[in-house]
C-alpha cells in the first residue's frame, strides 16, 4: 500500500512539474493543481497509513489514525482552492490584457544589460 501511494505521489509530482514547466498559463494552473494533490497526499501520509481507524472518538475503540496531518491537509485543500482561483484570475487577466497566455516575460520586456538604471542616478 505504501508503495502504491508513494508511486502515485511521485507520478503526480512529475506530471505537475512537467506541466508547470510549460509555457502557457493554463498548463501551469493545471500543473499547480496536480502538485497540490501530490503535496497534500504527502502531508497526509506523514501520519502513516492506517485503514479503518478514522479519528472519530468512539467508546470501545482504542486506536485511531493520526489526526494532525489531516487537520493540516484539510485547510491546505481549501487554501489551494483559493490559490488556484487567484492564479486562474491572474492568468485570465494576463490573457485579456496581453492577448496571449504565455507565462514568460516577452523578450522585448526583458531589460537589456546596458540600459539599467545606475545606482546613484535616477534621472528618468
Amino acid at each position: 500500500m505504501e508503495l502504491l501511494l508513494s508511486s502515485a505521489i511521485g507520478m503526480l509530482t512529475a506530471a505537475g512539474t512537467y506541466l508547470i514547466l510549460r509555457r502557457r498559463s493554463f498548463a501551469v494552473v493545471l500543473g499547480t493543481t496536480m502538485l497540490s494533490y501530490a503535496i497534500n497526499l504527502f502531508l497526509f501520509s506523514t501520519g502513516r497509513l492506517v485503514v479503518n481507524q478514522p479519528p472519530i472518538i468512539e467508546s470501545g475503540v482504542t486506536s485511531y489514525t493520526d489526526p494532525i496531518p489531516q487537520a493540516l491537509v484539510l485547510t491546505a485543500i481549501v487554501i489551494s482552492f483559493g490559490m488556484t482561483a487567484v492564479t486562474v484570475m491572474m492568468a485570465l487577466g494576463a490573457f485579456l490584457e496581453g492577448g496571449d497566455d504565455r507565462v514568460d516575460m516577452p523578450r522585448a520586456d526583458r531589460q537589456p544589460e546596458t540600459s539599467r538604471i545606475d545606482a546613484g542616478d535616477d534621472h528618468p
Binding site: 505521489i9 511521485g10 507520478m11 509530482t13 506530471a15 504527502f42 501520509s45
Partner: peptide, 16 residues
Amino acid sequence: AAMLGLGFGGLSYVVM
C-alpha cells in the same frame, strides 16, 4: 519532472 517525481515519491515512501 521525472527526477523530482522520483525524489518526492521516494521521500514519501521512506517517511511512510
